[in-house]
Design a protein around this nucleic acid. Sequence first.
DNA 1: AGCACGCCGACT
DNA 2: GTCGGCGTGCTC
Length: 718
Amino acid sequence: MPAVSILLPLPLPEAFDYVVPQGMALNVGDIVEAPLGKQTRVGVVWAVKPNSDGSNLKPVISKFETAPLSKPLRDFVDFAARYLVVPPGQILAMILRSREALGDGPIERLALATGIVPDKPNAARDRVLALAATPIARAQLAKDAGVGSAVVSGLLKSGALREIEQPVDTPFQLPDPERLKRPLSDIQSAAAATIGDALQKGGYTPFLLDGVTGSGKTEVYLEAVASALKASPDGQILVLLPEIALSQAIVARFEDRFGAPPAQWHYEIGQAAKRRTWREVSHGRARIVIGARSALFLPFAKLSLIIVDEEHDGSFKQDDGLRYHARDMAVARAKFEGATIVLGSATPSLESRINADAGRYQTLILPARYGVALLPKIDLIDLKYHPPEREKWISPVLVDAMVDTLAQKEQVLLFLNRRGFAPVVLCRKCGHRMKSPDTQSWLVEHKYSNRLVCHLTGFSMRKPDICPTCGAPDGLVSVGPGVERIAAEVAELFPEARTEIFSSDTAHSPTALRNLISRMERGETDILIGTQIVAKGHNFPGLTLVGVIDADLGLSGGDPRAGERTYQMLSQVAGRAGRAERPGRALIQTHYPDNEALQALVSGDRDAFIEAESQGRAAMGAPPFGRMAALHLMAQTDDGVDGAAKLASDALFAAQGVEVWGPAPPPIAMVRGWRRRRFIVQADRSVDLSAFMAAWRASFRVPASVRVTIDIEPYSFL
DNA sequence: AGCACGCCGACT
DNA sequence: GTCGGCGTGCTC
């Protein structure tokens, strides 16, 4: 009797073998049910072993009549498991997330006119039969025709209507590549045509689409998608976006362009919609899918094009559960699928740039269109020479600029990437700092709610009147600025100005966000004080001055991408100022005016920054010039985590081109009672770092109470 | 991931 | 004397 290896969506080390029961034909990729201990689980046939004995194995229970997982997808699962150093079943679990998509799914019964004329025709019956020319639900039919359900039942009985069964999950409308074409610029057309050629030829072809804001990247995406639709009658297209919440506008543009809404995949669409998308994708019937990073794991029947928009965006890196970078995984998947992939960004990541420079990606550049705002004039304010007053944060130079701008009836944006009033509350008598009980991170004071808040866990408490350590009354002082404190300072300086705070605290709901933005757009706000949420994509026509309160946040620490992130954030924020007809200005307060990222901002020379940043990282062997990985340990007690760290440390072995740092407690040393320790591993590009991490992980055993996770190419160093 | 087995504390 | 806590190990 033949046997099969079945991969189960569980963290098991390998696929398990089962015997194929008489009369069941199984192929690689088939989705089946198999017994595991006392339970039955859904799994996927990973290998067929026709010559195996199999008599000592349990039998497969059943086979689902759904589309099998394609070979490129199975290869991708094996690759991702090996690369991310997780059991393959954990990757499969990502793919089988929508279990209800398997099997037959819900069915609804519809009535349809058969053409048989009833014995006693009348007006009511005629109306019903006319409406039932196309299939329609019985209740709906009676309601629409304005008759009781008895009329419908009668017609069904007489044979004038018949019942048909249809899956509730209706197919997605087919997109029409010829609908609503818009004229493109020559450069846009050329870029789209280059991508179109690659699609026509087929095979893995990666592109980096480097286009500044306003250069019309989306039009190029749309034409590339149109090319993909035309190049292959069954090819599917995946569009990955970083923040789906911000992208309903993009979904609408796809619908306009192709006359059909694309399939969507993200956590907000709900179970039923997910089931429908999963099923339609697996049968190859959903042609265009727009989704967040996890859409990468959808079971496409034939994927011909992947677009990763805003490829530099950090939210593509998932940091809980399975740790993966959706952009990097998308490139890998495109390789296995033999698909074209377009990584698009106004500020491409250094990773992608280096890949492009090395010839691994083909670069397409979209320059700014005529009349579209360029970066405003940017100047630094050296806080050493122009310090604010004591307990104040806005330099006199910035205050003067604000006065001028407000006098012109124009708007000001002050940027500070810190929520709340003050980032630290400490006792001036004993030095005690108010810390979060879970994370030991500082509690941030929020004046409006008069509470101390942990920004990591959401823990909050009333601000105590006396110091909890020494009991000194009035000893607690607020140190450092948050947006609320800047707002207070602005209110003192400009009592007449209409001022608003834009942070996740004030834009807590979509409506609140919408209102805030439209007040700013209509010029009903004079001074907007915002955290990084202002950096994303809003255009305010009356905004001509951007002030950055503290450019130095995030310029230190062990994060190799800190400089790049700061540069990107500041250039995005600065880019909010000014339009073509009204030039804008950005003033950046800093203690480090010589910093290369800041200098590059001032000179407007993006390439100079890239060059300096590349050299710096190359010298350090940091990504993308070297490889990096982290090994995290978590336990409920200090002894537990330190003991595990010792075990891991003792098991370490020397390897050519590999350096290991640690164990050390990360900046957030405790999360909800879990003590954390971390090793950082740096390796030459030539090293198979995944293999090293897997070998290391296999060489020590820790108690089950300790959690060990491996992060390949970590992005977060908290 | 579930689920059972197993060895130590407070209950009818 | 049991019921049940969750630490450890196994599932083809």
